[in-house]
C-alpha cells in the first residue's frame, strides 16, 4: 500500500519534470522557457521530495531510526528549493529584460513602455549636468 503512494508521488514528479523539459524545447523565447524550466521543475521536485520524506517516515515507523534523518534533510532541501528557485528565475528574467531581450510573440510589454518613459528624463538630467 505504502509503496504505491510512493510510486504515485514519483510518477507525478517525473511527469512534471518531463513536461519542464518539453517546455524548454518547445517555447519560443527566454521568458516562456523560464516558465517551463522553473515552475514545472519546482512542482515536480516537490513531489519527488515528498516521496523521499514519506519513505523516510515509513522506514522510521518500521523502527529504523536513522531514516528519520532522511525525511528531515529532504524537507530542508525542499524549503531551500522553494525559496531559491523563484528568486533565481526572477534574477534571470530581470537580467534578460535589462540586456534588451524582447519577449517573442508578446501582445503587450508594459515594462518596455515604462523604461522608455523614464529613459529620456535621465538623459536630460545628464545633459544639464
Amino acid at each position: 500500500m505504502m509503496e504505491w503512494v510512493l510510486y504515485a508521488c514519483l510518477a507525478i514528479g517525473l511527469l512534471f519534470n518531463f513536461l519542464a523539459v518539453v517546455g524548454l524545447l518547445r517555447f519560443p523565447d527566454v521568458y516562456t522557457r523560464l516558465h517551463a524550466g522553473t515552475k514545472c521543475a519546482t512542482f515536480g521536485s516537490i513531489f519527488l521530495s515528498l516521496a523521499v520524506i514519506l519513505y523516510g517516515l515509513w522506514r522510521f515507523y518500521d523502527g529504523n531510526e536513522a531514516m528519520a534523518a532522511l525525511s528531515v534533510h529532504a524537507f530542508i532541501a525542499l524549503v531551500a528549493l522553494l525559496l531559491t528557485n523563484p528568486t533565481g528565475a526572477h534574477a534571470i528574467a530581470r537580467a534578460a529584460h535589462r540586456s534588451g531581450v524582447v519577449p517573442l510573440q508578446a501582445v503587450v510589454d508594459d515594462l518596455e513602455e515604462h523604461n522608455q518613459q523614464s529613459m529620456p528624463t535621465s538623459q536630460e538630467e545628464k545633459n544639464v549636468e
Partner: peptide, 28 residues
Amino acid sequence: ANSITLTPGTLSVDLDEDNNLYVHWINV
C-alpha cells in the same frame, strides 16, 4: 513576487520605484 513566480503562468520580471510589479504572463 515569489508566490507569483511559483504559480505557473506568471513570472515576476521587475519592480519599479512606485512598488509596481512587472509580471510576464504566459497567457494574457
